[in-house]
Design a protein around this nucleic acid. Structure first.
Length: 273
DNA sequence: CTGTTAACCTGAGTGC
DNA sequence: TGCACTCAGGTTAACA
């Protein structure tokens, strides 16, 4: 489901509801997520602790507790986190319930169960799975020189490269297509052949597209909603994703769809070279 | 090392 | 209605 903009919107939406709240109890459903649910740690280390800070790194939500622990939540494809009154009827695929000390509950719902949660010690050093992540798109480390060096001599399509979290985090299948359209570069372009100026364009455009998507509340294709259950509206601004056969909004050529590394990719054959 | 495929899982949509 | 099939916002082990 969510890429960087959607996770960021959820993070901002949740923050006022959870920061300063004590988690009184964690209720785990019977099913496992992509990684086994750490029931023991949730009961012993998260229940009873107070959420001091909520932040985002890549597509992870980070709940920093007052007891030195950190709860890490990844939403996978269909994961949702929302705030509900304790008496609200539970939904199908609610897998985790965090009972807060103000009568509200934060519920983790995930139809396909590709998401997962991790409880870890909050140390100065990042532990797995955060340790291997590349820079955020908005960090200065995400530079043209960095990308050029990483890409040197390689034939990988630029779209896969942008979606590789070791290179840069947060860009998934929708925004990879959108960024490359806005940058005027074909998704199949081999990364080794890009020049510094093109990397500069990709960086600038990435930041623009992601920022605009956050402002629009994220992209809702089928079931993404923010923490309050409100959909995003960036899908109205999508230039190519899901628009195969439709006319390019810039040049009226027909948008094409091509599978690259097993993922649907969309582009305008006239605007992108 | 490089790059692609398949797998994890459920539900929605399509065509017959 | 029912059935078979395809596809979906992520990640990663296994493979060539």
């Amino acid at each position: 489901m969510p890429e960087l903009p959607e996770v960021e919107v959820i993070c901002r939406g949740l923050r006022p509801h959870v920061v300063g709240r004590r988690i009184q109890e964690v209720v785990c459903g019977p099913k496992e997520l992509r990684l086994a649910v750490p029931r023991n740690a949730l009961q012993k280390q998260i229940a009873g602790a107070t959420i001091m800070k909520l932040s985002r790194r890549a597509k992870y939500l980070l709940f920093d507790m007052d007891n030195g622990r950190r709860l890490l939540v990844h939403l996978g494809m269909t994961g949702r986190l929302g705030i509900f009154p304790a008496k609200a009827v539970q939904a199908l695929h609610d897998h985790l319930i965090f009972r807060l000390d103000d009568g509200m509950e934060m519920r983790y719902n995930d139809t396909r169960r590709f998401g997962f949660v991790v409880v870890q010690e909050r140390t100065g050093q990042e532990n797995a799975p955060l340790a291997q992540l590349g820079p955020e798109p908005f960090w200065p480390e995400f530079s043209a020189e960095y990308l050029k060096k990483k890409a040197a001599g390689r034939l990988q399509p630029i779209k896969n490269f942008l979606m590789d979290s070791r290179v840069v985090v947060g860009i998934g299948n929708i925004y990879a297509s959108e960024i490359l359209f806005a940058a005027g570069i074909l998704p199949t372009m081999p990364i080794g052949s890009l020049i510094l100026d093109q990397w500069r364009t990709i960086i600038t455009i990435s930041r623009q597209v992601l920022t605009r998507a956050i402002e629009a509340g994220g992209t809702t294709i089928s079931d993404y909603v923010n923490a309050s259950g409100t959909p995003g509206y960036f899908q109205l601004e999508l230039a190519v994703y899901g628009r195969a056969g439709d006319k390019c909004r810039k040049c009226r050529a027909i948008i094409e769809k091509q599978t690259i590394a097993g993922r649907a990719s969309y582009f305008c054959p006239r605007c992108q070279k």
